[in-house]
Amino acid sequence: MAGKTLDFVGATGRAALRFAATVGEWGVLMQDTIRGLRAVRIWGKLVFEQMMRIGVASVPIALFIAAFTGIVLALQASYTFTGAVPVYLVGSLVGKTMIIELGPVLTGLALAGRVGASIAAELGTMRVTEQIDALETMAYDPAAYLVLPRVLAGAVMFPAVTLLASALGIVAGWLTAIQLLDMSTPEFVRGLETFFVPFDVVFSVIKSFSFGLAVTSLGCFFGFRTRGGAAGVGRAATSAVVASSMVILVFDAFWAAVLL
């Protein structure tokens, strides 16, 4: 019994050390990335391209998710509010939930899968085929050339895509309300306005900004530390998605606790 307890303690300790080492390595990469800000000539021209790849190319999947989320929110709110609760509150629930919670989180999780995996696989392939070493031998700072444009693009485009998705989710909820729930547009808008405060949008932007930083930096991090050929690239992509998703949920709770 004592032996098993000791084994458990040892295994837990080793896992904690590995986790701390991983966080430390991520921190070093971020430090290099921040230092890379000075090398504007290296990363300046690459940010726009990454904004297109990370942000614009992600719009369809984000809008698809948001539209169906808006529809379901309206239907479920109507189902829940039967009786004592005024039906115009369907608009409140759809608007508030899309802006401060489901818009940022669902968009963040969708982009963690799409963007995080893509970055990790791309940089992982570059690592195992020595393309990152080649960059270094040509006097390029890989953090400035590869990481910084992606992280900056993520920080800018995640909020933009999130706002767009939240707006479409609300529109989908409104269309559902007037088409399927016998609500009028004024009723829905009244509900939207009742609990809306401009800070909700700020809150959404802050959250999605942090999700963008997390997803892109973790994608780059796991890509950079890839080892072992195709299998290693696969592991890097998986690790990036899992870690990003977990961090998004932790940040979600953190911002709610700190800012609301």
Binding site: T129, E130, Q131, D133, A134, L135, T137, M138, A139, Y140
Partner: peptide, 28 residues
Amino acid sequence: ALRRSVGYVFQFAALFDSMTLAHNVEMG
């Protein structure tokens, strides 16, 4: 500065696969 004075030919070439050959050569 040292790296600019050294040309490194990699075992599997390590060409940037998203770039044309001309762009690869232009990188340095």
